[in-house]
């Protein structure tokens, strides 16, 4: 068996250099990739109840879940997209049906839904959001609040046509 003339050190250096180049964005892609689609977060789908009804607000409100929905590639805002939202709040647990609701994006691709104050559950104050309507790839998000005292939480979707 003949030994390769490429030493291990050369390979390591070449690998590290290519990694650095890729990370720093110095490579020129064959075509402009545009806006990358959002990938689902770990645990995002936990306690999901498909088909939550579109509501004016979940429970008594007082806390604002908001964000934007855009199309992958060109970043165009998407109107009328249904976003489902749920969390452990002052009014119910994540699993309870009354903790779930849905809303639609406006012409600017913006959605807002009032809901009860999110309280820490399973160690973190967090919310859940889902896009699961079929026209685009399904995405589950699980944003975490900076502070349990926050009165709002944002989450943004970039959707890939299915």
């Amino acid at each position: 068996m003949s030994h390769s003339r490429l030493g291990r050190r050369t390979l390591m250096l070449a690998g590290a250099a290519s990694l650095l180049t890729a990370k720093s964005g110095l490579t020129v892609p064959a075509r402009a990739q545009g806006l990358q689609p959002t990938t689902s977060m770990r645990g995002g789908a936990n306690n999901y109840r498909p088909g939550a009804p579109i509501v004016d607000r979940i429970g008594g409100g007082g806390f604002l879940m908001h964000g934007t929905v855009r199309r992958a590639g060109d970043g165009a805002p998407l109107e009328g997209v249904r976003i489902q939202i749920w969390a452990h709040t002052t009014e119910g647990r994540e699993r309870d049906a009354r903790s779930h609701g849905a809303t639609l994006t406006n012409a600017d691709g913006v959605f807002e839904l009032e809901m009860p104050q999110i309280v820490p559950a399973f160690g973190q104050p967090h919310g859940h959001l889902a896009y699961d309507s079929g026209a685009f790839e399904t995405v589950f998000l699980r944003p975490v609040m900076d502070s349990a005292r926050d009165a709002s939480l944002a989450a943004h979707f970039v959707l890939q046509p299915a």
Partner: peptide
Amino acid sequence: ITSPPDMID
């Protein structure tokens, strides 16, 4: 019991 998917994860 409180949240099966979270514990399984």
